[in-house]
Amino acid sequence: MPSRLMPKADIEALFARFEAANPHPQTELNYTSPFTLLVAVVLSAQATDAGVNKATKELFAAAPTPQAMCALGEEEIRQHIKTIGLFNTKAKNVFALSKILAKDYGGTVPKDRAALEALPGVGRKTANVVLNVAFGEPTMAVDTHIFRLANRLGLAPGKTPRAVEDGLLKRIPARYMRHAHHWLILHGRYICKARKPECARCLVRDLCRYPDKTG
């Protein structure tokens, strides 16, 4: 864990650089609507975005709405996503959440955290992604990349995902919160990797509090 917190001025500089390098970061999951985004995020647990995108190409073509997903049925959903880890449980959850959305919400995805988290297979992280990407809410979905970066960079050290989430929401300037989640994920996925961070290619190396830099 970093020896000390990154100062506010450095946090501002860090996100200013991320913004300059990538003004409009996007999720790497393929989706066409809040519903397909929700399904893709549910499927992405313990799976790669590339793997999810491969599986959902035909799934979303066959069932782009909750009603169509219900008509497809759990077994057909399972067949479409069987290349993804935990596909049995995920098929049950996708079918079940689709039934709830069709029955209780007219086929629309609710823009409400409590309602989202009440859906099968949807936890806080998934709800945060949907609220951020689909509805533009300034949320912070803490996955393994963001948890690592928050501690490694000194942004918001914490022992649990929720502690890190709360810390990041307090410390990241409001003007950057809309895209902060994606900037951090992409930085963690391609530069600040878990086993061997590529510090020589890091555009915020001089701001980072990590003592064991490489290169």
Rank of each mutant, 00 (worst) to 15 (best):
Y31P: 00
F18V: 03
E28T: 14
Y31G: 00
N30D: 15
P34V: 07
D10R: 07
D10E: 15
Q46P: 07
L38Q: 09
V42T: 10
N30F: 10
P23I: 11
L43A: 04
F35R: 14
L37S: 05
L5E: 09
L37P: 01
P25T: 14
Q46G: 07
F15K: 10
F15I: 12
K8W: 07
H24M: 08
N30S: 14
P23T: 13
F18Y: 14
A9R: 05
M6L: 07
Y31M: 04
R4E: 14
E12R: 09
F18M: 08
A13M: 04
A40F: 09
V42L: 08
A45S: 12
H24D: 15
A9D: 11
A45H: 05
N30C: 12
S33M: 07
K8R: 07
L38N: 09
I11L: 08
V41P: 00
N30I: 10
P7K: 04
A20I: 03
D10V: 06
P7H: 05
M6N: 07
A16W: 00
L29V: 09
V41K: 01
A13P: 01
T32D: 13
Y31L: 02
L29M: 13
F18K: 01
L14F: 13
D10Q: 14
N30L: 13
Y31V: 00
L14I: 14
A40T: 12
T48L: 06
V39H: 00
H24N: 12
V39D: 05
F35A: 14
E12T: 12
F15Q: 12
R4P: 02
L14D: 14
V41C: 08
A45Y: 03
S44D: 04
T48F: 05
Y31W: 11
P34F: 08
L5Y: 05
A20G: 10
P23V: 12
